[in-house]
């Protein structure tokens, strides 16, 4: 029982990442009709916003410590971050330590600007092109973004730790009456899950309860009619692309402490997120979220030693297996609308 609870928890945080990326993908597909293979790269860019802010906060002045030497035997250059010089070691140190949460504020304008630039500079020329063309151009864009990041940050993962307050684990087992230490879960993963729930709730509320959201939903249903009513739907869709980029970016920012960011991390999530979108139903926001969590949990269970020993290799194919079954039995996905990507 404790193993099952633990794998459900694991699935929830993994599903959070899938759901957030799939949500952005669905927003773009639902509004612009574009299959965006660069979405994983936007997730990666978000994580590198956290890396960048951490690097900026660590920019340091150098002083020579003659009592110590570096690896070449020269006097050691001691670095003192500027923020510690300006605000004192306590406040400056806290700013560096809390760089990941602070990076949320840092990432929003950057990701929005990146989103607008991509949509206006590239994607808009492909609205009326075949999905295959869209996939090719956005996949190419993803590779370009990856290589840019690798050029500046290198290929190795860059550790970007969570604040000390969130290191360590929460003992769920104690809460549920199990022995201590049986069901423990890292605090930051709980934060990630809560953050994902907040973002998902925020996007749904935005679309459901604002005039802007209402127009976007109308545009998703019938773009032509909304345009005939004199509403500039294109501008709103550009904004939606920026919002989708922000959602992916913020998912990346908060993911940075879970696994050290590297230039390739977007690709690792991209294919799985597309499967999530297809399983959830192309164009269905609730479907994307539900499928994200469902597949995250299934993947966790499939990785259990007992399951793998019964069905070797199941951990590597479970998501694709589910996708095949869903597509065979319900081609439009779990919550997909009739007519979307059909025929």
């Amino acid at each position: 029982m404790d193993a099952i609870i633990l794998q459900v928890l694991n699935g929830l945080d993994k599903g959070s990442a899938y759901a957030l990326i799939a949500l952005g993908l669905t927003l773009i597909f639902g509004t612009l009709g574009v299959v965006n293979f660069a979405h994983g790269a936007l997730f990666m860019l978000g994580a590198f916003c956290a890396v960048t802010l951490n690097g900026i906060l660590r920019l340091s002045s150098e002083s020579i410590d003659p009592s110590r030497t570096d690896f070449l035997g020269n006097p050691l250059k001691v670095k003192t971050p500027y923020v510690e010089s300006w605000f004192g070691p306590e406040i400056g140190g806290a700013m560096i330590e809390w760089s990941v949460p602070l990076a949320i504020l840092f990432a929003i304008p950057i990701m929005a600007a990146v989103g607008v630039a991509i949509e206006r500079g590239l994607i808009k020329f492909f609205y009326k092109r075949a999905h295959a063309d869209q996939i090719l151009v956005t996949f190419g864009l993803a590779i370009v973004l990856q290589e840019i990041i690798k050029y500046f940050y290198g290929a190795n993962p860059i550790p970007t730790p969570a604040p000390d307050a969130f290191t360590g684990s929460f003992d769920f087992g104690m809460l549920l009456g199990f022995d201590p230490g049986v069901i423990i879960y890292p605090y930051w993963r709980l934060v990630y899950f809560a953050f994902a729930a907040l973002i998902i709730g925020g996007v749904f509320a935005f679309l459901q309860y604002t005039t802007f959201g209402m127009v976007v939903r109308a545009g998703m249903a019938d773009r032509e009619t909304v345009g005939l009513l004199g509403i500039n739907i294109d501008r709103r869709f550009t904004i939606m692309f920026a919002i989708a980029a922000c959602v992916a970016g913020l998912a990346g920012v908060m993911y940075a402490p879970i696994n050290s960011p590297n230039y390739h991390m977007g690709m690792d999530f991209l294919v799985l997120s597309f499967v999530v979108v297809v399983v959830g139903g192309m164009g269905s926001l609730p479907g994307a979220v539900a499928a994200g969590f469902l597949l995250g949990i299934l993947e966790s269970f499939a990785s259990m030693a007992q399951v793998v020993s019964l069905l070797p290799g199941i951990n590597q194919i479970i998501i694709y297996l589910v996708a095949i079954i869903i597509l065979l039995t319900r081609p439009r996905g779990l919550l997909g609308r009739k007519g979307v990507m059909e025929g």
Partner: peptide, 22 residues
Amino acid sequence: VEAVKTPLAQTDFSSYIAPVLQ
């Protein structure tokens, strides 16, 4: 006590770490 193979492309090892706790 146990030796578990993990896929080369795996990025999040939480589901493999969790059974270690059990």
